[in-house]
Amino acid sequence: MITRRKMMQGAAAVLLASAFAPGAFAATEVAGVKFEDTATVAGQTLKLNGAGQRTKVIFKVYALGLYLPEKKTTAADILASQGARRVQIVSLRDLSSEDFGEAFMKGLNANTDQAERTRLLPQTKTFGEMFASIPGLKKGDVLIVDWVPNVGTQCTLNGKKIGETVPDVAFYNAILRIWIGDNPADSSLKPKLLGGS
């Protein structure tokens, strides 16, 4: 006859074994937000290159994870990366579409020159219309910005597609430079996205 104690020991052993099973630690946590080690974009498996949080003054604004086909440690290598890519943003506070859009434009302008901004103006306008189409981000909302090869930049908010597809890879790279460019939005976030601690 199996005693209650033996049943409990068996259950504990199963739990312990599952805790150390492959994949048990397959998530990176940032400010209470879990980023899985892999993501799939257009049928391609991507790896989490790095993740961190954007802080403004003393406020936690959002957690961000960067997914690439293979790990890279420099901004130049990330921008030259072939294949699909993903930026996953999880809001850590309520943000109006105006605040988020303004921060986006500030980051874009800080990391592009006048000629590039002029060239990317139509795409930037299309992206700006996306911000205008949503009331903002609530705490816990998940905004995903994907680069899909031969298609373009696609955005989803909580799993629902928002905005138009923007076809130019130069525009996606301009978005990435908001966080990994020479003048990143948060200097402490950049090294984390480059795979640092």
Results as ranks from 00 to 15, higher is better:
residue 61 V to L: 03
residue 27 A to L: 07
residue 89 I to K: 02
residue 14 V to W: 09
residue 110 A to G: 13
residue 124 T to W: 03
residue 136 G to A: 01
residue 194 L to I: 00
residue 103 A to K: 14
residue 67 Y to R: 08
residue 86 R to V: 00
residue 68 L to R: 05
residue 129 E to N: 12
residue 143 L to V: 05
residue 155 C to S: 13
residue 161 K to P: 05
residue 23 G to Y: 02
residue 185 A to S: 13
residue 143 L to N: 02
residue 18 S to Y: 15
residue 28 T to K: 12
residue 193 L to Y: 12
residue 193 L to A: 11
residue 126 T to S: 12
residue 20 F to W: 11
residue 70 E to G: 09
residue 104 F to T: 06
residue 46 L to Y: 03
residue 176 L to S: 08
residue 61 V to K: 02
residue 99 D to M: 07
residue 136 G to Q: 03
residue 149 P to G: 07
residue 145 V to T: 06
residue 149 P to I: 10
residue 82 Q to E: 15
residue 67 Y to L: 12
residue 92 L to W: 07
residue 113 D to Q: 07
residue 181 G to S: 02
residue 48 L to E: 00
residue 41 V to E: 02
residue 187 S to C: 01
residue 181 G to P: 04
residue 78 I to D: 02
residue 192 K to N: 08
residue 89 I to W: 07
residue 92 L to K: 01
residue 1 M to S: 14
residue 106 K to T: 09
residue 103 A to Q: 12
residue 52 G to P: 00
residue 1 M to G: 14
residue 12 A to P: 04
residue 153 T to N: 02
residue 137 L to K: 01
residue 144 I to N: 09
residue 165 T to Y: 11
residue 20 F to I: 12
residue 19 A to F: 14
residue 63 A to Q: 07
residue 35 F to A: 03
residue 27 A to R: 13
residue 136 G to N: 05
residue 3 T to H: 04
residue 181 G to T: 06
residue 17 A to K: 10
residue 196 G to L: 08
residue 62 Y to E: 00
residue 85 R to L: 04
residue 130 M to F: 09
residue 67 Y to W: 12
residue 142 V to C: 05
residue 3 T to A: 01
residue 171 F to E: 07
residue 34 K to S: 11
residue 138 K to P: 00
residue 72 K to M: 14
residue 170 A to N: 15
residue 14 V to Q: 14
residue 146 D to A: 05
residue 51 A to P: 03
residue 10 G to M: 10
residue 42 A to T: 08
residue 18 S to C: 15
residue 175 I to E: 09
residue 158 N to I: 12
residue 124 T to E: 11
residue 92 L to N: 02
residue 16 L to D: 04
residue 111 N to D: 06
residue 66 L to M: 12
residue 52 G to R: 05
residue 56 K to V: 01
residue 33 V to Q: 10
residue 131 F to H: 05
residue 89 I to S: 03
residue 92 L to S: 03
residue 195 G to Q: 10
residue 111 N to H: 06
residue 176 L to I: 05
residue 148 V to Q: 11
residue 121 L to E: 13
residue 18 S to F: 15
residue 126 T to E: 14
residue 157 L to F: 04
residue 70 E to R: 11
residue 30 V to M: 02
residue 6 K to E: 11
residue 64 L to W: 06
residue 48 L to D: 00
residue 120 L to K: 09
residue 119 R to F: 04
residue 23 G to D: 07
residue 113 D to F: 10
residue 139 K to C: 04
residue 5 R to D: 13
residue 136 G to Y: 00
residue 53 Q to P: 05
